[in-house]
Amino acid sequence: MAQLYFYYSTMNAGKSTSLLQSSYNYRERGMNTLVMTASIDDRYGIGKVSSRIGIESDAQVFSATDNLIDMIATSHEADKLHCVLVDECQFLSKEQVKQLTYVVDVLNIPVLCYGLRNDFQGELFSGSQYLLAWADKLVELKTICHCGRKANMVVRLDGEGNALREGEQVEIGGNESYESVCRKHFRELIWD
């Protein structure tokens, strides 16, 4: 029986690495996977999922208005899918998360979603909110703060490395723009 999984964490916890490893494991056993990623994140090129450790895969891109049932069903009809893996799932809309539940419940294809839980102000992303509510399995991937505690928050940095308290929820960036920290350090930088 297929299930909807949400693998969440802060930045630099190995989400993309884990996704790529899962896809590799399926393919190594002769099974087909569909790797998908948000079109908004083109840091490594359009239609690519890349890991900081140097591995990557081609991916089908989705935008906020795409119907994922149609995209996945088309791929499934062309070549039977055994698993769908979604990177940057925090950018999914509520409707798209609902569509992924259809893929699991009706098409009977497992869906593994990987993404951030919350933004740089400590607020949930829309896709993450509904995955937390509707996923069958929730798995936290862990990374650490500079102090050694578990990092569960993300801080956005300006050009000089200072924490920002305001701004648009989505601003694509990597280590130059974001730092994963524990809640204590997030409190000191953002809330206090």
Score class of each variant (00 low, 15 high):
Ser9Glu: 07
Met11Thr: 05
Met11Ser: 07
Asn12Ala: 11
Asn12Ile: 06
Ala13Gly: 07
Gly14Lys: 02
Ser18Asn: 15
Leu20Met: 06
Gln21Val: 11
Asn25Gln: 14
Arg27Ile: 13
Glu28His: 15
Gly30Tyr: 10
Met31Ala: 15
Thr33Val: 11
Leu34Val: 01
Thr37Gln: 03
Asp42Trp: 08
Ile46Ser: 09
Val49Trp: 00
Ile53Asp: 08
Gly54Cys: 11
Ile55Leu: 11
Glu56Phe: 14
Glu56Pro: 14
Asp58Tyr: 06
Ala59Cys: 10
Phe62Gln: 03
Thr65Pro: 10
Leu68Gln: 03
Leu68Trp: 00
Asp70Met: 15
Ala73Gly: 14
Ala73Pro: 11
Thr74Asp: 12
Thr74Ser: 14
Ala78Glu: 15
Ala78Asn: 11
Asp79Cys: 12
Lys80Asn: 13
Leu81Thr: 03
Leu81Glu: 04
Val86Gln: 01
Ser93Glu: 01
Lys98Thr: 09
Leu100Cys: 07
Thr101Ser: 08
Thr101Gly: 03
Thr101Asp: 05
Tyr102Asn: 09
Val103Phe: 03
Val111Gly: 00
Val111Leu: 06
Leu112Ser: 08
Cys113Leu: 03
Cys113Trp: 03
Asn118Trp: 06
Phe120Leu: 03
Ser126Met: 13
Gly127Met: 01
Ser128Cys: 04
Tyr130Arg: 07
Trp134Met: 07
Lys137Arg: 15
Glu140Ser: 08
Gly148Ser: 06
Lys150His: 15
Ala151Pro: 01
Ala151Phe: 01
Asn152Glu: 12
Met153Val: 08
Val155Met: 09
Gly159Lys: 14
Gly161Val: 07
Asn162Pro: 06
Asn162Met: 11
Ala163Leu: 08
Ala163Pro: 09
Ala163Trp: 08
Asn175Gln: 15
Glu176Leu: 11
Glu176Arg: 13
Tyr178Glu: 00
Ser180Thr: 08
Val181Glu: 05
Arg183Thr: 11
Arg183Glu: 14
His185Gly: 06
Arg187Leu: 14
Glu188Trp: 11
Glu188Gly: 09
